[in-house]
Amino acid sequence: MERAGKAIASELLKHYNFNQKSVLVFCGPGNNGGDGLVISRILKEKKINTTTVIAGAKKYSEDFLKNLEKLKLVSDKIYLYKPVASLKSVNPITEEELENIIAHSNVELIVDSLLGTGQKSPPKGAIKEIIEIINRSLPNNTQITAVDMPTGFNTDSGEVYTPHLRANLTVCIELIKKGMFQYPARDICGKIVTVSIGINCSKGTSAFILDQKTAPYLPKRAPWAHKGDFGPSLIIAGSRNMPGASALAAKAALKAGCSLVTCAYPEKVPALEQLLIPEVIRAPLPDNNKGYFTEDSLPFLKNKLANFKSVAVGCGIGSEK
């Protein structure tokens, strides 16, 4: 938590000047919120005007409480929205007071440290109310930075919940989370950067960006391998009105590593993939002169499907019967 908070605070100092402006850090009850407390403490130690708002909850993580005590040593601007018995020592703040701080305190940056990984349902309780207050009170020029991920989306599927926060910058710890590659979640993450805190993420990684560092993790191909070892793949695509669909699908298959690609398309459709990608095998299917797949196309498919290791079907086939 200390390393995560320090790494993210360092990233914030790279992106923002904080000249005579303030920072507002919102913390949830878990470890993501604990990261926010560390960020608040470090910014405060840098003489940056920082206010911390904690969401009321039934329970707080042990590390969260430890970092709260550390923050109290350097800051007296710590508030609790929706007071709870477990945090009696933190000054309560009302909805009206919170709206006033957001709208009229010359806030340059809001740090979203409310919820982290494992978001599987819409925000509830105090966190839900805080999001709604931020969204209706936020000045146009105030930026939002999310700690590890914005609050309010499913980190696996990319589903965005109501309510949610839209970040201008998301600082991910070690890895970009899988849901961030998918829309609509990608749209609420803003610019995405990663920071390292020394965690070994070589195992259990299900999504990553392909670059010079990650490319070596892809399976290596033997020098004597041939095109039959990486396929064969069948694409069933295209129609009279969408002849380019098979070409686009074939390009994608080849780019993904399929070396032996066959395109099945209605025979009255121009074979664009043959003109654009000569290495693709053509398989025009009977279509009764209609320009889209019909029952006449089925015999080939039934007889040949067993010859392919993967099949992509549906691109541009239309809805005609």
Results as ranks from 00 to 15, higher is better:
S121A: 11
E99A: 00
N154L: 01
K191S: 12
Y217E: 13
E108L: 07
F153V: 01
T145G: 05
L87Q: 03
I192E: 07
F230C: 00
S239K: 08
A185M: 06
Y81R: 02
K177V: 10
I54V: 05
E273V: 12
F208L: 14
A283F: 11
I236L: 08
K70S: 04
K321Q: 12
C263K: 08
H104R: 13
K47V: 07
N303G: 12
V171M: 05
I131M: 03
L165D: 05
T294P: 01
V261A: 04
E11A: 06
E174G: 00
L210Y: 02
L98T: 08
I317R: 01
I110Q: 02
L275G: 03
E129M: 03
A215R: 13
P92D: 10
G228C: 09
R136I: 11
V160M: 00
V90S: 05
A146G: 04
R221N: 09
V280K: 13
Q20V: 08
V84D: 09
S89L: 09
K21M: 04
P219T: 09
G238W: 14
I317L: 04
A222C: 10
A247N: 01
S246R: 14
I48W: 07
Q274N: 14
N32R: 02
T117H: 06
G244Y: 15
L87C: 02
T142Y: 02
F18L: 00
K128S: 02
N154K: 05
L305R: 14
T142H: 05
E108V: 15
L175V: 02
K58P: 07
S246N: 11
S196V: 04
L98R: 04
P232N: 09
I277S: 07
D211G: 14
T155V: 08
I176M: 08
Q274H: 15
K88E: 06
G318V: 09
Q143V: 14
P29R: 03
L165C: 07
I176L: 07
G204R: 12
A250E: 02
T205C: 12
I93D: 00
K14I: 08
A249T: 10
T162K: 09
E295R: 15
A271W: 09
P216G: 00
M242Y: 15
N31I: 11
P216S: 05
